[in-house]
């Protein structure tokens, strides 16, 4: 099949970018979207042009590295997928495809489709962990966790940190990302102990990083490749209020 690509090219954070047009006509419909991008880059290199820089690594939807707006949607038109899992069979022959980086003030563009998502790491650094140094823990079966609790904690913990939630949010809010970690750790007895401290620090860091307010439009849940529920956000809100009210 043949596709007409309009890809965002930008040298660095300080330079203005723009959409550039590319034609690609040897596209196989079993190709993944990123393999299509590989094919394009191969052609660009051989023509002596600079290839399109884009983030990618595991190509099986779990590392959270790849992320781009494809036809104006985070990770493309199919919900629940990362860009690397999107296949060209989802597009029609001759289609025009727009490709842009994830955008948010807190995600500056590094080059082309590559963005800086280190703000996510800093949110985790603020408190997204359980204070348990190596060697301290007791026997694993000492504290029981019901099947349901473990599964629910897993649902929250499954976040891959790709940033699609921020990219698709009209306010560039990081509420889904932040809340998933807060909820994961608040749900289990091991993490409950420092839940109050954690939520206060993580929320305050989220704000400092320049993410927007959550308006509960729920677009994040729709675009999340792991289907992280927006109820995590409600959980964060609850934990936050509780922590503030019960603060010494």
């Amino acid at each position: 099949m043949r596709v007409h690509l309009k890809i965002w090219r930008q040298k660095d954070a300080g330079t203005a970018g723009k959409l550039m047009d590319y034609e690609l006509d040897n596209v196989d419909n079993h190709m993944s979207f990123l393999e299509m991008m590989d094919t394009l880059n191969e052609q660009l290199i051989l023509k002596g042009e600079m290839p399109v820089e884009f983030d990618h690594d595991c190509r099986e939807g779990i590392c959270g590295t790849c992320g781009m707006m494809i036809n104006g949607q985070a990770h493309g038109p199919v919900p629940g997928l990362t860009a690397c899992q999107l296949h060209m069979r989802e597009f029609e022959d001759g289609a025009t495809i727009y490709v842009e980086p994830f955008r948010a003030a807190a995600f500056p563009v590094k080059r082309d489709l590559k963005v800086d998502r280190s703000a996510f790491d800093r949110i985790i650094q603020a408190g997204g962990f359980i204070t348990a140094s190596t060697g301290q823990p007791a026997e694993a079966n000492t504290i029981l966790i019901t099947h349901e609790t473990a599964e629910s904690a897993f649902d929250s913990a499954a976040c891959i940190g790709c940033g699609a939630c921020v990219a698709t949010c009209k306010n560039s809010s990081a509420a889904l990302f932040t809340s998933a970690k807060i909820a994961h750790l608040a749900k289990i007895p091991q993490g409950e102990k420092e839940a109050a401290k954690r939520v206060l620090k993580m929320v305050s860091r989220m704000d400092e990083e320049g993410f927007g307010h959550c308006s509960n439009t729920e677009a994040c849940e729709v675009e999340c490749p792991q289907g992280i529920s927006v109820l995590n956000i409600a959980r964060m809100n609850w934990e936050y209020t509780k922590a503030n009210l019960l603060k010494d």
């Binding site: 359980i130 348990a132 007791a138 694993a140 504290i143 029981l144 019901t146 473990a150 913990a157």
Partner: peptide, 19 residues
């Protein structure tokens, strides 16, 4: 396993709560 559980790794559990 002890270490991972303490860190919050949500391993699969039986209904009664055991790993």
């Amino acid at each position: 396993i002890d270490q991972a559980v303490a860190q919050g790794v949500p391993f699969a559990r039986e209904y009664g709560g055991y790993l």
